[in-house]
Amino acid sequence: MSVGSVARRTMLTVGLPVVLVTAWWFATANSTNFFWPPLREILEAFADTWFSNRIMADVVPSLVRLLVGYVLALVLGIGLGVAIGSSRTLRGVVEPVLEFFRAIPPPVLVPILILFAGIGNEMKVLVIVSGCLWPVLLNTVEGVRGLDEVLRDTARCYGLGRRSQLTHLVLRGASPQIAVGARQALSIGIILMVISEMFAASNGVGFTIIQFQRTFAIPEMWSGIILLGLIGITLAFLFRLVESRALAWYRGLRMTQRGEG
């Protein structure tokens, strides 16, 4: 790659974001509008607000709850999904019920689970689990069901035992579809992390941002919005990193198939 094309690509990648941020900076530089404070103030507020004990007091608890809930949902969803996907009868019985659960907008789980688990950490983790579960579960079912018949036969012919079939055939074969579910679940998890805190909490990012809004601490509120954005972007990036490693084979396979077709 020549220096010129590198420069060009860099320009194209960072050009627009730089222009947008600069535009924001100058458009609000002398803003006296209460709702749209200067970007400079927002950034100052960001440093003051989040680089203090709030990281430990609010950001970390939120992220821990998200992580615990998300991982539980993955384990549960994949486990149940494999079981349901492997049995035609079981699938027939539970599929309509699962479709119904999937269709319920996950945020309505918050008021329900408050009944059972109060407004503590358990409720929030439970909300995240019960919202993230369905996309993982249904996509795992789909992935297991879609396993190639010939590949199944091959595994049987070459004497792969149950354990080995599970790890080498079922989980690997369903992994592209599981990843689709896991990605959906991550987005839902972030939403639920935030709104479970907005709804009822005493700490957490969502709680803090709503407090700022209610007390009209506008630059701080903006800094919170930016923080949530950064959390979303970082988690999406981490997800992509893991996915691109685990599913490198799948990308390659798809690219060759597309090349042929």
Binding site: L12, T13, V14, G15, L16, P17, L20, F35, S187, I190, I191, V194, I195, M198, G206, I209, I210, F212, Q213, I218, M221, W222, G224, I225, L228, G229, I231, G232, I233, L235, A236, F237
Partner: peptide, 26 residues
């Protein structure tokens, strides 16, 4: 397309619920 790819990739994962306080304010 080339010029907007990074921006779209950046804006897309921003959780919409982050906008709730702003929406309420407005």
């Amino acid at each position: 397309r080339a010029a907007t790819t990074s921006t779209i990739e950046f804006l897309r994962p921003i959780p919409s619920v982050a906008l709730i306080p702003l929406a309420v304010l407005l």
